[in-house]
Computed example of a mutant assay.
Amino acid sequence: MDWYPAPDEDLLLRTTAKFATGVAPAVSGCRWFRDPERKDIQGELSGWPSGPAFTLRTTGDQAARRTGRAFLVGIPLIANLIANIGGAAGSPFGDVPVRGKPEEPENEVRDFPVMWAASGALARTVPWQLDPGRRPEGYVTDLALTSRRLLFLGVRSGTLDKADVLGEFPRESIATARQMKFSEIGADVRITFADQSWIRLFTGNPDSAERLAELLTGTVQMLPESALSEGQRQRVTRFMADLPDTAQPPAYTKLASGIVMVEARVPAKAGTDLFETHSILMDASGAPAQPEPGDL
């Protein structure tokens, strides 16, 4: 692995992360950085290189982009159908539709801020490499959540280099998080800091967005690997051995009945920055388990 948590913390989740992109016709392919008065602040972000400037789409632009996007939007649905027909071990994109309904038209239809931050707010301190329009080609960013920190990591594709730690925030600096379903494959999440500034990220998979939001709001119980029994560890080893080498580290969720769900993300062939979720359920001994009512 290219990055390890400190001895006094446990890794709970790692997922790809980058600033999200609008999907509504007027904001399709766009993103903005705003203060609470909706002023553009990207020129005020300390140390950030210049990036693309976006404007709201005209009617002609919207029609052209809808035609081009029709093929891309269909990819996750086709992938899901193939997975379901073949009885795949994990649903690549979950049961989430390609897009939900707008929950905040002012931030998803008429505008699309991916940063909302007053002067001096925490959101302004996230790394600029999260912006696909600014980071170097071949450089990708991940989010790692541990028992005490949220970190942003930078990785150069196709290398074995150690990941760059681009930024980190103590867990107590995060107020809440929310999956934003009006997005490409429902994989956006909004992270709100204690000072009420926020960022909106694309995580590559709706399961990742949902799990991250649940973790940061405390609605699920995640387990560190150290909490697994010997039988469970052996089962996880066999599970991971069947996945490609590109699989991300597994995440462990203790469900209401006490059984453990293991999830691992694998880069999907359907498109760039998309991930499939593979999962298993196991009991305390590591044997396969069936979910009980209320587990899922």
Rank of each mutant, 00 (worst) to 15 (best):
T192S: 13
L212F: 03
L296E: 07
A284T: 08
D142E: 15
P132C: 03
P293N: 06
R57K: 15
V165A: 06
T277H: 02
L223G: 12
S285G: 13
F112Y: 15
T67D: 13
K101W: 08
D188Y: 04
E184Y: 15
A213K: 11
R178G: 02
G51K: 10
R134K: 14
A24D: 06
R265D: 08
R14E: 14
L223Y: 09
P206A: 06
F54K: 01
T67L: 15
G258W: 06
D273W: 09
L166Y: 01
H278Q: 14
R134G: 00
P97E: 09
G60D: 14
L201S: 14
P244Q: 06
T125C: 11
R171E: 07
S208N: 14
T272N: 08
F19S: 00
R238A: 15
T67P: 00
C30K: 13
F54D: 00
K254N: 08
Y139Q: 09
T16L: 05
F71D: 08
E214K: 14
A187N: 02
T237W: 06
P97H: 07
G51E: 02
L11W: 09
I185M: 13
T277K: 13
E137C: 05
A175F: 12
A6P: 00
Q234D: 15
G90V: 08
G87F: 03
P76F: 05
V262D: 03
D40F: 02
